[in-house]
Every structure is written in structure tokens, then in C-alpha cells.
Design a protein around this nucleic acid. Sequence first.
DNA 1: AAATTAAATTGACGTTGTCAACTTAAAAAC
DNA 2: GTTTTTAAGTTGACAACGTCAATTTAATTT
Lengths: 200, 200
Amino acid sequence: MPKKQNYHHGNLRQQLLTKADEMISSGGLDSLTMREIGKQIGVSRTAPYNHFKDKSALLSAVATEYFLDLKNRLSAIDATDYEDAMDYFKAMSNTYLEFALENPERYQLMFGKNSLRRSDYPELKIAADEAFYQLILIIEFLQRYNILKEGNSRSYAYIAWASFHGLSSLIIDKQIEHQVDSKILTDFTIQTLIEGMKKD
Amino acid sequence: MPKKQNYHHGNLRQQLLTKADEMISSGGLDSLTMREIGKQIGVSRTAPYNHFKDKSALLSAVATEYFLDLKNRLSAIDATDYEDAMDYFKAMSNTYLEFALENPERYQLMFGKNSLRRSDYPELKIAADEAFYQLILIIEFLQRYNILKEGNSRSYAYIAWASFHGLSSLIIDKQIEHQVDSKILTDFTIQTLIEGMKKD
DNA sequence: AAATTAAATTGACGTTGTCAACTTAAAAAC
DNA sequence: GTTTTTAAGTTGACAACGTCAATTTAATTT
């Protein structure tokens, strides 16, 4: 029980990241204001500015963590766990979709229109690229084993990513009639995608 | 040259819609503020509130127009113009993608995370549904002619929509390496999608 | 012509991001 | 061990924004 009543906080940066994630996850992106996050941590409204240039920089750091999480989840999938190679692909697809749908608020920070230009935040770009690279790896694996068509693996990865991303976005933004069971729809999407990419 | 120096403006509502589109198209969503749009039209900052309950209502009205535009473009595609039925599908796909990429700012208002809940704006929902319905119609047409697999046309429409939407979003948000030619990628996506949906 | 109503105006308020000037305590230099 | 420097935190202030309330103006209805 650290009774840190110090003027200097010590680990404010880390606490900001943790609290930011907490606020985003529970209350959505809009609930995170620089003033409020200071208040909740028990620090003045401008204290965060000693650790992050501005709000975008804080959000970018949080988004970077999310991309690393996604990357880890994708890379944790082990091909040898699946007898049928296609199940490996399905596992990857489901992992992505679960990630997106399990916490839409997080996903929205990563991809939503909140003007986080990747080019302005190199770490964010690297983390995002790494997550995407996992997708390429899986595609290339399946190509090597003659499961998927040959061809530019990066392009196929983009197609898969676009499908998952589009589907996630539509579901998250409630643009799909809610009678529609999203589990059935995601399965159907994965199946159609495989059909379009698999070797005859 | 209407020298309308009247106190009462006459057609402010329509001018607001026009100017809002103008501002969004050229400067992006963030450039549209209630104060600025008033200034640009030559009217006080709160004048718009006589015609739209709040900023969201104005944005919703603009978004509705965009959806109607999309619907019109999709319904203008005539199946009889295409010898190969598959070209009909491709034309539809390209129309959607061109719509999205030709003016990303507009597209972002329609789909971006700016909390326009459809349920709060019935007209918006109707317009969006109508645009989507065009997609269903095309799918059903191709199913009738034995080009595409049978099955729930709405589900296939969702899959197609998700693919286009995901691809558009990724390109718009510059999440695709810019060495990648987006025309080649969109063609490749359309082809893969067709492959996954077409009847063997 | 009077009354009502629709449309526009100015003033004000609270919220937000963030800058500037200042203070405090820790770290570094002597 | 004292002094100096620097990192981290504080309060005050400002501009931009959305929007409400009170008011004024002009068109419409009576």
C-alpha cells in the first residue's frame, strides 16, 4: 500500500495509460478528457502534459498497446494445434473478430476516425504493422502447404483484413439488423472468404 | 442576384445543407462547426438552431443526402448493359468503391465514428437501408440467373458490403502501404469475393 | 390594424484542450 | 553538504466550441 502523497508522483505515465484504457473501455472514447483523467488519478488537469505532448499522443500510446495485444493474440495461435489447416485460418479469423467485438471501444480507438495519423506516431505504426504481419505469416503458411492460392500474400492479407475489419465495423456501429446473429454471419463470412482464396 | 438583406432569410435550411456539404467535402468533418457555418452563410451563430435541433441533426440530414446519392448511383446500374452478368456485379462493386474513395470526407460522415445513431434519425436509417437494399437486389438478381450460390441474399449482401466497406476504410485511413495500387487491390478484392460467392 | 408566430440576434455558460508562469522536490554538480 | 539544475506538478488564463435563454424583428394570421 504505497502511501505516495509525494508531490512527484513517480509512475504517473503508467497510471495514465492504465486509467486511459479503463475510461475508454468502460465509457467510450468521448468519456476520456484530459481534465477528467487527471482528476480520477488525483492529479491536476495539466499534469498529464508532462508525459504526453497532447491528448493525441496519449491516445496514440494507448492504441499502440492495443495493437501489441492484437499481435500477441494472433501470434499465440499455433498451427500445430489444428489437424485441418483450414481450422488454423478459422482460428485466426475468429481471434480477430473476437478481439474487435469483445471491446468495441478499444477497437474504435485503433481504427475509428479520430485523426490518429500513423505517420505522426512511429511506435503506433510499428505496432500496427506487426499485427498485420501476423496475418501475412498465416497466409504464407497456408500457401506453402498448398491450401490457399499462390499470389501476393500481402494482397490476400489485405483482403482478409478488410473483410474482418468491415464486418467488425458494421456490427459495432449497429449497421446490421439486430435480428441477424453475428456469430452466424461471421462464420459465413469466413467461409466465403476461404472459398474465394483457397486453391481449387 | 438576390439582394436578400432581409432579416428573415427564406431558404436558410437548404443553404445550411449545401454549405455543410461544401465544408465537409473540402475541409473535413472537423472543419464544420456551428459557429463557422453561420459565419460563412452570413448569419448569426445560433441561426442554424431554428432549422436543426443540434449539430447532430444537421449532420444527420447531410448524411441522409449522401446515402440517397449512393442509392441512386447503385440503382442507376442497369443489368442489361452488361453481357457477362459478372460484369454487372463488378460494376456495382466499383461504383461503391468509387463513391467511397472519391470523397473520403463524405464517406466518413456516413460511417465514421461520430455517434450518429441511426435509431435517433429515422430518415437517415431509411436512406441507409435503401442504399443497402440495392445491394440485396443485385445479389438476388445474380442468384436468379444461377451466377451466385443460393442462400440468404441478405447475408451475402452483408459480406459484400463488409468487404467494400473494410477496404474503403483501410484505404481512406491510409492503413495500406501506399506503394500498393488501390485500383489493383480493389479489383483483386472484387475477384476474390466473386470467387467465394459464385456458383461452382 | 392587431395578434400571433416563425426566424433571427446577442449575451451568457459550461466544457474542453492547452499554453504560460510559477512552485516544489529530486538529482546532479560542486 | 550545500548549491544548482532540471524534472514534475500546480494554478490561472484563453480561445473555440455547442447550445440555452431572453430578446428583437418581420412575416403571417386573425
